[in-house]
Amino acid sequence: MSKSKPAFSAIFDRDVVAYATLSLISIFCLLPFVWLILASFDKNASLFLRWPSPWTLNNYIGIFVREGGARWFFNSFVVVGTATIIVLLLAGLGGYALSRMKVWWKRPFLYTIILVRVVPPPALIVPLYKILLTGNEAVGSFVRSLVSPESVRPAMLVVGLIDGYFGLTLVFAAMQLPLALWIMKTYFDTIPHDYEEAALVDGANLFQRIRLVIAPLALPGLAAAGLFAFISAWGDFLMPLILLSSSELQMLPLGLFRAFLRVQQIDYGFLSALAILYMLPAVIAFGFARRYFVQTFSGGVKA
């Protein structure tokens, strides 16, 4: 980036060092994947590195043919996708509010929500389960009053807080919200107030201002916050493990966790293929989000 022109040898030397360092880091990052990729094409894969013999695609095909792979993908996308949308809506509005308002509890609130995330998930399982179960009973009686008895169970699979799409979606959204709020708040801090004030002069009310002025400006920040939330929720396995039971609701991490923990005999080929497919959406999301990250975070934190 520098505009000066040092001697040729200096560039050469420094670039060699840069290439060497970056190559080492890249090898470190890539090395662990070698086994995963080879094993996923190996009919007789084992836990350890070996050259596939014979090569096969059956591991991948089996995920959809023998197991409910398509269902797992669908459920993961529904739950994580909905959670991400909720995070975007709430963090967009909330982050804007946090950036613009001047109340005494703003900083304590921001620190509280980020620090409380330090509590490891196992400590939250039982309290979370209890509150969701209480909510679930309320939702249950509401649903029972609306639909015929035989539709109650299918309905609860969708709106139930325990063993239902809705509950897990809310949990994911709540868990991802604190970081998303931070990202959006710091992002809005970098957007000058001028635009809103111009809109205000034009007589726009708060909601018009948000829809017409703020939302378009917030897009890069939302992209970064949303993709962080998506990737993080996509990778979580403990909450689905505890909160879901019905086979209709099984998600990718559970399919994987189960395949891995079928105690006695693990099919490593199947497992690796599933792991790769499971990784893929997160990797794609990351590639997609990459260009927004720097834009969002640059100057994000005000000294």
Binding site: F142, V143, V147, S151, A155, V158, V159, Y165, F166
Partner: peptide
Amino acid sequence: KTVLLGISVAS
């Protein structure tokens, strides 16, 4: 909306 959607899917 979620409830309504859920109920229609459920039925």
